[in-house]
Design a protein around this nucleic acid. Structure first.
Ligand SMILES: [Zn+2]
Ligand SMILES: [Zn+2]
Ligand SMILES: [Zn+2]
Ligand SMILES: [Zn+2]
Lengths: 143, 143
DNA sequence: ATCTAAATAGAAATGATTTGCGTTTATAAT
DNA sequence: ATTATAAACGCAAATCATTTCTATTTAGAT
């Protein structure tokens, strides 16, 4: 028996973000929702071209940037410094474990910012504004 | 009374890395050694053009990549995804506190990889290969 | 049905980074 | 010192992911 996967309706989310519910945007979210791995704008473009006869790569870039700015998706840091995105299901503070083999992304919650903030405050006498933390490795299937 | 700053001789370092001690390379290391802030390849190029009538930007890029590969310098992660480098004095495991205002970089030692590795092993059943950790904020002068 | 700002497609531009290649140079062997 | 050789270099050109431009379309409100 396969569990029935209910497809999320992303219209309310877009509305709450003040973004119009265009077919391209909804398709992007639905597609990203089904992905466990990070994707490049071009990956996403290629997938969506199957469903839309006409869809421009700039549209993909614009929407990804927009959604990232609204914290719906996050960037993955890659050695080649190109853009890659992953659709986070978690909303609370967390970070990503990225498989360097299959590109799968998994959330984890350990985060030592509290310790770091203390050290920055005490030794460096500075103020922490943000932090970048990403763990790269091999996932269960790729180990 | 000013403390006399001894300028490090980088020839032994380059030799130990199997790199030729060229004037450009030595100048790059000496210059980076005097910097507290991260620099772009072009920043470095502009500074070195004062001392060398003829010096190409590709040379800067090539040497920076080489030195980064040998763990002499490290990259700084920047929102614009361009290359920035910082010359680390610490050799043991540490991370960077980067001032978003003045670009100054300071080392700090807190690092929770051990905790993270445990969580990755127990919950995700994966293997940690590397981790990226950078804290952005305001340094003592910029707070 | 009408209106308007937002969104889009497609073509073109951008610009940081990389590559190709002929010349120079550091370094070690003679 | 000379010489030999791989490594470095300068310069011009290429690359190519990303961004910008502009005319057209469209979602959502009136
Ligand atoms: Zn994997
Ligand atoms: Zn954190
Ligand atoms: Zn500062
Ligand atoms: Zn660490």
């Amino acid at each position: 028996m396969e569990a029935m996967e209910a497809k999320t309706d992303y219209q309310p989310l877009l509305k709450s973000l003040g973004l119009k519910s265009t077919p391209k945007r909804l398709a992007m979210l639905e597609m990203l929702d089904g992905e466990q791995a990070y994707l490049s704008p071009e990956d996403i473009w290629k997938k969506l071209k199957r469903r839309f006869k006409s869809i421009g790569l700039p549209t993909i870039y614009r929407n990804l940037e927009e959604l990232e700015g609204k914290n719906v998706i996050t960037k993955v840091i890659h050695p080649n410094r190109q853009l890659y995105y992953y659709f986070c299901r978690h909303s609370s503070h967390h970070h990503h474990f990225v498989c360097i083999s299959c590109k799968k992304v998994q959330d984890f919650t350990s985060c030592a910012v509290a310790d770091i903030e203390r050290e920055i405050r005490d030794k460096i006498k500075g103020k922490v504004v943000s932090h970048i933390f990403q763990v790269n490795g091999l996932c269960r299937e790729c180990v």
